[in-house]
Write a protein that binds this DNA or RNA. Structure first.
Length: 542
RNA sequence: GCCCCGGUAGCUCAGUAGGAUAGAGCGUCGGUCUCCUAAACCGUAGGUCGGAGGUUCGAAUCCUCUCCGGGGUACCA
């Protein structure tokens, strides 16, 4: 519908050149009585033309060459909106497109030929994924899906660090537990990893090696085994949510490949860094940040900024058109430095899109659960999936704008009641599947021959909703907003349920009945496609 | 102190390139299964869009100030 109007206005701009001076936008009015699409173009032009908006609207309309079989009414309303009313027959034609495109309905080619990299999760292997990681994981994977739907070729990437203090503490935590299991009275520091999983790893080492590891260095088997076990668990947790990264990038490889030294030299050579108090400082002030910062400590160890910049440089050199970074708001301070660093190296920082999601607050029976990986006082992602199911978890994290500090009510998630909208969507899909089974017995089929019969309110509402799908996917992808898909699908399902209730198939004359089957079938495709973007299953029956 | 995010119905949240009477789900209250799945549908009630100014034909949306909550502001990541 929108495309039709756009080309219509495009043709008209020859006669009315001022139409080229503004972006003409069409909105779906909140009220049905205001038509199918509406534009405020006339109001936008009042200041330029110094004319009454209704007068301008009049002029625009009289120059539009519309086809009566497509648009049956154009009106001027309110302060100067132009409202367009499409014929039911035209609206129903969308069903043919859906059948033709099927699994691809909703996809667009705007970014065809472009390559994107989405980096997400990126938790170091020090413990199981928590609920906070869950939000990151689900949103990251769904954003990647969205980008694929608008034409990008997408790589999903996981960046991790298995060196450094954090990992040493992890190894030592295991060792201390191991010694405790051997009956030694060792002290277990409060800032070590307290989780039960540490004890399990220690137990496993004990089972395999007995007491032979007493003199094993922390960095040896203790750390290695902990890392591999934990990393496997992480991958399994992600797999339960159908999340699979193509690339696991080890921060350490940047050191091994000399990328860090090279970058350091480059910064020095470009006079972007200097030495002070035994440390190397980066001139972030010059690059637009609020102050200079240390990139190599006086101990000789780089701070996180240096590898972060080297890593992004590396990704850019791989030739991506778009890099998406997704992380929690606790890491918010890292990205301006990375962008400044990358820009100083001559890359276009516009290629990097940083998405920051706010924290997840866990509520259990009305109480806030405070979480910390160290203290092992956390709800794991696995627990969440155990209790609520993968579909609910994926839907739940996707359904909210990442800027919102979301509450995850555990008791509610456990309930799996109809308070959860994911069932509402899945039920709509299951209902359609059941209709399609039923019509076989009734010797009916899906037919697009008499789509013009789909004229009642419920049918038209549903059709209009379907029309919006492709634009909704595109908008969501361009704005990296997964929650819009959820809201769209809820509206779509609501339209369907209404249609289901009022527009029965059995007991209706065959031509109309078969057109309704076609509409149901088309709705099924849109629901299934939308759910697949979210990574939620579309069950045949419930 | 400074920076980022949030404050919209009882609860959880949509809605910001300024637009028509501010929305949804859940919860409240009241209806609908002889009928393709009632995990559904219909109706009802519920609001000072945190507060105060300002910009204009028009502000939840833009500007200034301010209150509340979360995060950040390291030679931690």
């Amino acid at each position: 519908m929108k495309n039709y109007l756009l080309s219509l206005f495009n043709d008209t701009s020859a006669a009315l050149p001022y139409l080229n001076e503004i972006d003409i936008l069409f909105d779906v009015p909140k009220q049905d009585s205001h038509g199918d699409l509406s534009t405020n173009a006339a109001m936008m032009l009042t200041k330029k033309l110094h004319k009454n908006p209704r007068q301008i609207a009049e002029e625009i309309i009289s120059n539009l060459k519309t086809d009566d079989s497509v648009i049956y009414k154009i009106e001027i309303a309110g302060p100067g909106f132009i409202n367009f009313f499409f014929t039911p027959a035209f609206i129903a034609q969308i069903i043919k497109n859906i059948f033709a495109e099927d699994k691809d309905f909703g996809k667009s080619k705007l970014f065809e030929g472009k390559k994107a990299n989405v980096e997400f999760v990126s938790a170091n292997p020090t413990g199981p994924l928590t609920v906070g990681h869950g939000r990151n994981a689900v949103v990251g994977d769904t954003v990647a899906n969205l980008l694929e739907w608008v034409g990008y070729e997408v790589d999903r990437e996981y960046y991790f660090n298995n060196a450094g203090r954090q990992m040493r503490v992890l190894g030592d935590s295991v060792k201390q537990r191991y010694l405790q299991l051997l009956g030694q009275d060792v002290e277990f520091p409060a800032d070590y990893y307290q989780g039960e999983y540490i004890k399990e790893i220690a137990q496993q080492l004990l089972d395999e090696h007995g007491n032979k590891l007493v003199d094993e260095p922390v960095e040896g088997l203790f750390k290695q085994r902990a890392e591999s076990i934990i990393f496997n668990d992480i991958k399994e947790s992600l797999a339960r949510l159908s999340i699979k990264h193509k690339i696991f990038f080890n921060e350490n490889s940047l050191y091994e490949d000399g990328k860090i030294d090279e970058l350091l030299k480059l910064f020095k050579q470009k006079e972007l860094s200097y030495e002070k108090d035994g440390a190397v400082w980066m001139k972030f002030l010059e690059l637009g940040s609020e102050q200079d910062k240390v990139i190599v400590k006086s101990s000789g160890e780089p701070t996180y900024r240096l590898p972060d910049i080297a890593y992004h440089r590396e990704k850019l050199e791989r030739g991506y058109d778009l890099l998406v970074d997704l992380f929690g708001s606790d890491h918010i301070s890292t990205y301006p430095d990375v962008l400044a660093g990358v820009k100083a190296l001559g890359f276009d920082p516009e290629k990097i899109k940083v998405l920051i999601h706010q924290f997840v607050t866990i509520l259990d029976q009305g109480e806030v659960v405070k979480m910390s990986t160290r203290k092992a006082n956390f709800i794991t992602l696995d627990q969440l999936v155990d209790e609520a199911g993968a579909d609910v978890v994926r839907y739940f994290f996707n359904m909210r704008n990442i800027n919102t500090h979301m509450n995850f009510d555990l008791s509610l998630a456990k309930k799996q009641s109809d308070e959860n909208p994911v069932f509402y969507l899945q039920y709509a899909h299951a209902r359609i599947c059941s209709i399609l089974k039923m019509i076989e017995k009734e010797e009916l089929k899906s037919s697009t021959e008499n789509l013009h019969l789909l004229t009642c309110d419920e049918e038209q509402q549903l059709l209009r909703k379907i029309h919006l799908f492709k634009a909704e996917v595109l908008y969501s992808a361009q704005n990296f907003e997964t929650h819009r898909i959820c809201f769209y699908l809820e509206e779509l399902a609501a339209s369907f349920h209404k249609f289901y209730t009022f527009c029965r198939i059995l007991g209706t004359e065959k031509p109309l009945a078969e057109a309704r089957v076609a509409l149901a079938s088309a709705t099924k495709i849109v629901l299934r496609n939308g759910l697949s973007i979210l990574g939620v299953t579309a069950p045949e029956r419930m």
